[in-house]
Design a binder for these strands. Structure first.
Length: 345
DNA sequence: AATTTTTGCAACCGCTTCGTG
DNA sequence: GCACGAAGCGGTTGCAAAAAT
């Protein structure tokens, strides 16, 4: 037995709204409000539409003070900061951007901002990713989760070693050490060894209970799927799931939670991506050898991938500027604004 | 000029959360 | 505490317009 439909599908119009329908809906809501009942509204307003559809049309398009068009740099930064803090919780992000809807921001992120931030890497340059040591560290910091800071006992990447990324379980590690409490989606850089060549790198929240709170899995992974395929996906069918555990209060996600911060998986490794912080080929070779050649396996796989986009010119400084202008740590969730939005509905 | 591909975004779908009895 | 229905939310889809070939 399936779920009861929210409306009579057979008698409901779908697809784009006509100006007449818009006018009817607007007029009705301006006169009567929503009556806190979207299901009953279309009938009262004389519309052959599903209540959900009416709600969406009103919220995303018809209600007053909706802002359309270009996002400002400030808005970009705010979106990035919030995204790096709370993930793809668009309604919360939208509450911080007056006049913007969650749908708008979601679309903007998926179609433009993500590309701006992460750029794309040509297929020919996907084998070994040489990342400038300091730059990568900076980037890790940019994406690191909000306060409280990770425990000093939480393993962190060695700044001068190679990192192997295991796309099967989304962990990374250096030889002899693994870091199951962090996730790194693959990053990309170019043969140019300058510090500004990184276009994509992100540290994701720990995939399991940690000192920072419950498991979270930011949608950055999903974002990267388009650019690189399998490496950014965690599930076996290639899909990328949003594993952010929803709790009633955001601070529960970040504050105070205790958990397992040291339970690593030993040294089991299935290296798929390799990152050479020192840009030293021989070091990387050693690593590959010590890893049973699995880094090579990845190289072969990736070279077959469809990754022919042109990299965007987003250097580290720009990313840092973009993200760190509003520090993650200084971000605070404004419950009042979110509440305002809810009440406006 | 015609066709194909890409992009942007409105709208839909279905799951989760919330409120109420 | 449970069941149910409505609202909220985020991922995905479909399609028109723009860009590329």
């Amino acid at each position: 037995m399936g779920r009861a439909p929210c409306c009579d599908k057979a008698n409901v119009k779908k697809g784009p709204w006509s100006p007449e329908e818009d006018a009817k809906l607007k007029e009705y809501i301006e006169k009567h409000g929503t009556g806190a009942n979207w299901i009953a509204l279309p009938q009262k307003a004389g519309l052959r539409r599903c209540g959900k559809s009416c709600r969406l049309r009103w919220l995303n398009y018809l209600r007053p003070n909706i802002k359309h068009g270009e996002f400002s740099d400030d808005e970009d930064r705010l979106i990035c900061t919030l995204f790096s803090s709370i993930g793809s919780r668009w309604s919360i992000i939208a509450a911080q951007l007056p006049g913007r809807t969650d749908n708008d921001i979601k679309n903007y992120w998926n179609t433009k901002l993500k590309k701006k931030l992460f750029g794309m890497v040509p297929q020919s340059q996907r084998k070994t990713h040489h990342i400038h040591n300091a730059s990568f560290s900076s980037l890790l910091q940019s994406f690191s989760p909000p306060s409280p800071s990770p425990s000093p006992s939480l393993p962190s990447p060695s700044p001068s070693s190679t990192i192997l990324y295991n796309c099967n379980n989304n962990t990374y590690h250096t030889p002899g050490r693994s870091f199951p409490n962090f996730e790194v989606s693959y990053s990309s850089s170019f043969s140019n060894s300058s510090a500004s060549c990184i276009t994509a790198a992100s540290v994701l929240q720990p995939p399991q209970e940690t000192l920072l709170g419950p498991m979270k899995h930011y949608q950055l992974q999903d974002g990267l799927r388009k650019f690189g395929g399998e490496a950014s996906c965690s599930s076996s069918d290639g899909s990328c799931s949003n594993q952010i555990s929803k709790t009633k209060e955001l601070e529960n996600e970040y504050g105070g939670a205790t958990g397992n911060n040291g339970a690593n998986n030993g040294d089991q490794q299935i290296g798929m991506h390799s990152y050479n912080f020192n840009n030293e080929a021989d070091e990387n070779q050693k690593l590959m050898a010590s890893n049973g050649g699995e880094a090579n396996e990845w190289s072969e796989k990736s070279s077959n991938g469809l990754w022919d986009e042109t990299p965007l010119d987003y250097g580290l400084e720009e990313i840092k500027q973009l993200i760190s202008t509003t520090s993650c740590n200084s971000f605070s969730f404004d419950e009042n604004k979110a509440e305002e939005k809810v009440m406006y509905y």
